[in-house]
């Protein structure tokens, strides 16, 4: 399984970015290879609107099986994400990527 996290940083200790569209980074964990990688998403800062759809496009290209985020995607992003076969878990606010992953594994994150 490939798990994507919206994150303020790029490591296991980084905090989850509660925003979907305007997340600083997308951190990816590949459960098979145990590899943790990160994709910079800071370019959306320059967009007044459309950050949600831009990030959804990026997520689509990364093809994760699971997305873990905080507040949850906004209306436009949610419309786009419906077209992606992926489970979405929210409310990981204030957790590190590691804690969010642990909570997801133990079934303690809310699925939307």
């Amino acid at each position: 399984m490939k798990i994507a996290f919206t994150s303020e940083g790029t490591s296991w200790d980084s905090l989850i970015d509660p925003r979907f569209g305007r997340t600083e980074n997308i951190v990816l964990f590949d459960e098979e290879s145990k590899e943790l990688t990160a994709v910079d998403n800071s370019a959306v800062k320059n967009d007044a609107h459309g950050a949600g759809t831009a990030t959804a496009q990026k997520i689509f290209e990364l093809k994760p099986d699971v997305l873990i985020t905080g507040n949850g995607p906004g209306e436009n992003a949610a419309k786009a994400l419906k077209h992606i076969k992926m489970r979405i878990f929210v409310d990981a606010n204030d957790l590190t990527v590691q804690q969010a992953y642990n909570n997801y594994k133990s079934g303690n994150l809310r699925e939307v």
Binding site: T53, A54, A56, H83
Partner: peptide
């Protein structure tokens, strides 16, 4: 970002 492409779909 008003037009995006998700595989075979244009949104």
């Amino acid at each position: 970002h008003a037009v995006i492409q998700l595989g075979p779909t244009i949104l």
